[in-house]
Design a protein around this nucleic acid. Structure first.
Lengths: 215, 215
DNA sequence: ACAATAAACGAACGGTCGTACTATTATCTA
DNA sequence: TAGATAATAGTACGACCGTTCGTTTATTGT
């Protein structure tokens, strides 16, 4: 019935099953803790059976990261493209980013975990993380450029600075949520985002462009 | 000759030696990777000899985190208290935070590593991280309050929001430095900090309060 | 200098790690 | 449905894990 995935062979099915558990585990315990044995036990496979799907632990780690990114795009980024071009879309990218963990049934973000785990450890995993993160960064900068084009953002808005600060807000939000268990974490993040966008608005525009009512 | 540490006994000396290596290692490879064997080899001790200093791996991890925080306070936070009360002190706390890694000869920040590694894993390590981070957060909020008292910050400045965003800036800076290897990371962080403080200034004051010349 | 004590060592433990092999079973294709 | 192929299981490996224990060496206070 479904069109695109013509034939999910048995191998692809179990591989997806493994990656489901792997993404879950990597978010909480990190990518180094992605051990073959634990994952095999969790999926009901034998160690060697699971291992055969990837060929090495590093390949498993990379596949897990790729899968996490794929899910993020699926549940967060791509849906945000439905929002109208400009500030509203940027806001939806941000909001979806804030919510994507719970939306995809995860307990922690594998992308953030991979980021801090490998950012200072050269190798294939770091390269993969960097590539994914740079792509995401680039998409955000593109979003800023669009907001400039629509006239909402000032012409001299600094897209790279915007992306820099946006990631900081997300990072801090995760910390407030997970470490401090602060229920107001999302609200703080949104307030920070509003301040960030406000400082990039074209001067002639009123504030009412933002998606939330001015109270 | 030196006054305070009356008698650094042999045990305390080697313990400090171990923690030196441990802090270094934990920053880059994380606290789970703080294995007894690697650390023993690195310090020239035997596994059992090193182990005796802590009694368990978890105690070693906690001691390493404590040591990292102690160093941070020593080289970054406490020196910032020399700055005059208010915005200038806040700015120095921030600047020292940005520079403390290189100042203490580390390659990566163990505190950030511990934060993302344990923020979603309940246990003694998470408790320790939370305690340290909450203390730091509290100190920053106190700094904001002082800046309000001096009249530099608006009376309704949100100290908690300030601390929230400040940590985000630091996080993003680490990512830009380590993952993206962006030489402009510190400059971006400072720009973000300036924007953050600017939005908290008392309305009657001019901008010239900030420490950096207006170009 | 000597006894009391602290510090470090060496060997061994049961486990788990990643990976390599071969054998067995399930799935696909003709 | 038979033969080819893909998927999984089983077993074993050397290495390292955290931890324990008894022994030996170094430091300390007297």
């Amino acid at each position: 019935m479904s069109a695109l995935p013509l034939k999910p062979s048995k191998g692809e099915e179990t591989r997806a099953l493994i990656l489901e558990a792997a993404v879950q585990h990597a978010g909480v315990h990190g990518f180094d803790a992605l051990t073959i044995g634990v994952l095999a036990e969790q999926t009901g496979l034998s160690k060697s059976g699971l291992f055969a799907h990837f060929g090495s632990k590093e390949e498993l780690q990379i596949a897990t990261l790729d899968e996490a990114v794929r899910r993020y795009n699926e549940v967060a980024f791509i849906p945000a493209l439905k929002a109208p071009r400009g500030l509203r879309r940027l806001a939806m990218v941000f909001d979806n980013w804030l919510q994507w963990i719970e939306r995809s049934g995860l307990k922690a973000c594998p992308m953030i975990a991979a980021n801090t785990e490998f950012d200072d450890r050269p190798g294939p995993m770091r390269d993969a993380v960097m590539q994914h993160m740079q792509r995401l960064n680039h998409e955000i900068m593109r979003g800023v450029q669009i907001a400039i084009d629509t006239g909402e953002f000032a012409k001299d808005a600094d897209a790279e600075q915007f992306a820099f600060e946006l990631f900081g807000i997300i990072s801090s939000c995760y910390r407030s949520r997970n470490l401090f268990q602060d229920p107001a974490a999302n609200a703080r993040a949104r307030k920070a985002f509003d301040r960030l966008t406000a400082s990039n608005l074209a001067r002639t525009e009123p504030e009412s462009i933002t998606r939330r009512t001015p109270k």
